[in-house]
Design a protein around this nucleic acid. Structure first.
Lengths: 334, 334
DNA sequence: TTTAGCACTCAAAGAGAAAGACTGCTAAAA
DNA sequence: TTTTAGCAGTCTTTCTCTTTGAGTGCTAAA
């Protein structure tokens, strides 16, 4: 589709624009080494790149800015994935080696690290619990009327929830419940909590029937409760020239404020390990001037981490860093 | 100090400025009912109010704006505390009646409600655990090497933490530990965890000595871990004309991003139930254009809720709403 | 196919000029 | 003694006009 020289010029334009945030002129590109043509030649090429939709102008006599299509081409075909320095590697490694008690704590560290290294705002949601396998479920009596249910899943994740009762609870009831829930749920996915209980339970355990119902209700809440949200480096985005425009800044705040939307964003997409969404590819008015890159860690008890940056984000750096973090997590032992 | 008319004029000016965010002219005040003097008279009074430091001008021929001293006078002496409508009362009541399993969940609801009703950004931190009395402490074995400690305090708060071990743990060890920690801690404040253990423990329970050490370490982390932070209505602040100035917006973001500082703000001040901090009274460069009003709920298992708004915040409305929420919480049963 | 050169376009920045919202002050009125 | 009308003076805001400079597109020559 695009010949080699056009690709190289497009690449140079995106790289330049990522750095400067200013429309790129033919002159500045012709000065780059590796592209030793006069500005007039570059100008002709740029004009054609614009006709094919890879570049845009802000006004008749301005330089060029990459279009969404241009960024897409850059991300899919032109981007180099080794944009990470030795210092950064060292920094990331050290941070991710921090000892944690729960795998979810690692999410927090990874989110923070990603934001520190890339200087963009990072959002993450914890892993979804629904499809995880229950390894063990225990009940703890607190006081006389408060019960805590603690559930351990196959990925090593722990979920706990508190259930209040109107009447006193007795130790032998807890025994019964312990046996019941473990036999019912052990080895099954979290959402099998809703499978109907056999009838005999309600006849044989009549005295605890209400209690069992209440517990199931509350466990359901745990399944569908909002995922934990991690957010790092909001202020970093406010250093961007893009956010000097009040409207863009407002859009950005709206994105972050609307937690449900952020969760959807990171969660619902049928994304691969690393995915890039550019501008309005995500069909959200607030996001039209931003891009999102997500890293999925599901299955390893990690959730999804996302970076929100301007459309002219440093895709190369972000993806390189994400790949490296992914590699460290995969190697495990962390 | 200030005669009655001056006070009424100052009050009118603050009220007007809170509404419009524009410097207030003598003309606009003389039109207000209850102040039937000519603009010239008002002008003379305003000039004197400025000399005494209650008002400021933005330039020679501009209207007047309240100074920090002016706001302080307004808050301390002129403010009416019944600025709350029946609709608002109904709305708040309904929200706060939501059934919750933990008292801390009520914090979240209160924070959200406060932001909804006042249209300002609201921050809250959970109650401090340090001085609370331990009512019960239980240990739950998860898998073979993971232990969860669950602590119930006198305010009904529950704290849990996970501790990982390098070696397998046996049920009888848990028994021992249960007895030990309960006899040591029951009825004592949370931070007494650090009181030294009697020597005999380490001789008699030699096999578990390491385990006990690890547990104490981890419980210490729970005490001093960052308080939970609730944040609502960030985007509401971005509707303020004040935040159209890029610098003010940046300051605002910095305040919110710097979690440690927010915690200090809400926590360390020797504030009463409701306290008002105006502009640079808090000696923080970022806060110089903002005011903070805090509501302390400590002791009832609630933490501290704070509203961050512009200096020309609607003190009257915010305080009225806070008082009402405080009343509802005090009446308890919630 | 590439490039030099030049006309043309448009945004950004600055310089006046005009309008309008205030104040402060003075002198008269209450 | 207190209040007020009236007016000069100040400063911001807004508008228009001009200048500057960074770009492009096109043509004709290399």
């Amino acid at each position: 589709m695009l010949d080699d020289r056009k690709k190289r010029i497009l690449q140079a334009i995106v790289d330049e624009y990522v750095n400067t945030a200013e429309p790129v002129s033919s002159g500045s590109i012709s000065k780059k080494k590796g592209l030793d043509f006069s500005s007039a030649t570059i100008r002709n090429e740029m004009s054609e790149l614009e006709k094919s939709g890879y570049l845009e102008k802000t006004h008749t006599s301005s330089g060029r800015v990459p279009s969404a299509k241009g960024y897409r081409m850059y991300v899919d075909e032109l981007l180099k994935e080794d944009n990470i320095s030795l210092d950064e590697i060292k920094f990331i490694k050290e941070k991710l080696q921090t000892k944690v008690n729960q795998i979810e704590d690692l999410m927090k560290i990874a989110t923070n690290t990603l934001s520190e290294v890339t200087h963009y705002t990072t959002v993450a949601i914890g892993p979804k619990v629904t499809k995880q396998i229950i390894q063990e479920i225990k009940f703890v009596l607190l006081g006389n009327r408060m019960l805590m249910a603690v559930i351990l899943t196959n990925t090593g994740m722990v979920r706990e929830t508190i259930i209040n009762f109107e009447e006193d609870i007795y130790e032998d009831q807890i025994q019964t419940i312990n046996v019941l829930f473990n036999s019912k749920l052990k080895g099954k996915p979290f959402d099998s909590i809703n499978e109907p209980l056999e009838d005999f339970i309600f006849t044989e355990m009549e005295s605890s029937a209400n209690m069992i119902k209440t517990i199931i209700e509350q466990l359901n809440k745990v399944i569908y409760e909002e995922s934990k949200l991690y957010l790092e480096g909001t202020n970093k985005s406010f250093e961007l020239p893009e956010l000097e425009k009040a409207e863009t800044a407002k859009n950005f705040i709206n994105i972050l404020e609307n937690k449900a939307e952020v969760v959807d964003l990171l969660d619902n997409e049928i994304s691969k390990d690393i995915s890039v969404y550019i501008g309005d590819e995500l069909d959200d008015e607030n996001l039209k001037d931003f891009s999102i890159i997500t890293l999925k860690g599901e299955g390893k008890g990690m959730g999804t981490i996302g970076i929100i940056g301007p459309k002219r984000m440093n895709y190369s750096k972000v993806i390189s860093v994400m790949r490296y973090i992914q590699k460290l997590i995969d190697e495990g032992g962390l």
